[in-house]
Simulated scan of single mutants.
Amino acid sequence: MSLGGLIISIGVLVDASIVMVENAYRNLAAASLNGGTIDYTEISVKSAKQVGRAIFFSIGIIVVSFLPVFLLEGQEGKLFHPLAFTKTFALAGSAIITITLVPMLMTLFMRGKFYPEHKNPVSKFFRMLYEPVLNLALKYRKTTLALNVLALIITVPLIMSRGSEFMPTLDEGSLLFMPTTLPNVSITEAKRIMQMQDKIIKSVPEVAHVLGKV
């Protein structure tokens, strides 16, 4: 689950830095259009100040949203606590790096000529794809809203039909047998006893597989 926490937080970890760099790029592109000498360091620092607080608190809100996971107990808590801890620590590190390391790197590497969004071929391509969809949604506002409400209503019966138990008891056809021996039994003797028990259990016709470990 720790690895799962890292996987689901990858997008959030890089998103904060992308927002800060994109804001600096936009300001540098605007300064390039105005002409004259460009103070890259000053513009980069100013850009970081513009979005730094918003980025920090947005990550903080995501961390707060995981607080209920820490209140889980029993089997659910053991399963999801590593995920929540991993994601929380990763987000905390991302917030610190975004407001400290990223602005410093922007002052070092963001140099050269910057093109505004309407002249950037990548931005033009994605705007060409997005603008028709946006215009259609804005033109038919009531229809767009109705479709979203309908999608929400459809999920209600699905939620109501689901059980409330987190991990129901499953009949997997497997049995767990955990015998104990005296503390002074050697490893060799313990293996011999285990092999004997496995042989006896395997002799039962209904048993398909036997797995034993010391």
Rank of each mutant, 00 (worst) to 15 (best):
V64G: 04
M196D: 15
A90H: 09
F109H: 09
L129P: 03
Q195I: 14
S44P: 10
L79N: 13
M178P: 13
V64S: 04
L175Y: 15
P116H: 00
T88A: 14
G163M: 01
V207L: 09
E76K: 10
K78V: 09
R111E: 00
L91W: 04
E117H: 11
V102R: 04
P68A: 02
F57W: 10
L28E: 09
H118Q: 10
S9L: 10
V14T: 15
R53K: 14
I154P: 06
V156G: 07
I55L: 01
T98P: 10
S32H: 15
A146R: 02
A54G: 07
P82H: 11
V102N: 00
V45L: 12
P205I: 11
I159P: 00
F85E: 08
N34Q: 15
I18W: 08
M1R: 13
M160Y: 03
G11S: 05
S58L: 04
I8N: 04
P121F: 07
K49A: 13
F70Y: 06
L105W: 05
Q50C: 09
S65K: 05
V19F: 12
L175R: 15
N23M: 08
L175V: 14
T86K: 04
I201D: 02
I154W: 10
E131G: 02
K49F: 11
A54Q: 04
V45K: 05
K139S: 14
S203E: 12
L83A: 08
S203Y: 08
A48D: 01
R127L: 07
I153M: 11
K142M: 04
F114C: 01
I43R: 03
M178V: 13
R53S: 15
P183W: 01
I99V: 15
K78D: 06
V210A: 04
T98R: 09
A30V: 11
D171Y: 06
A31N: 04
A208K: 15
R127T: 03
Q195L: 15
V133C: 09
G60D: 00
I18R: 14
E206D: 12
G5W: 03
F70T: 00
Y115F: 14
I55E: 00
F80L: 14
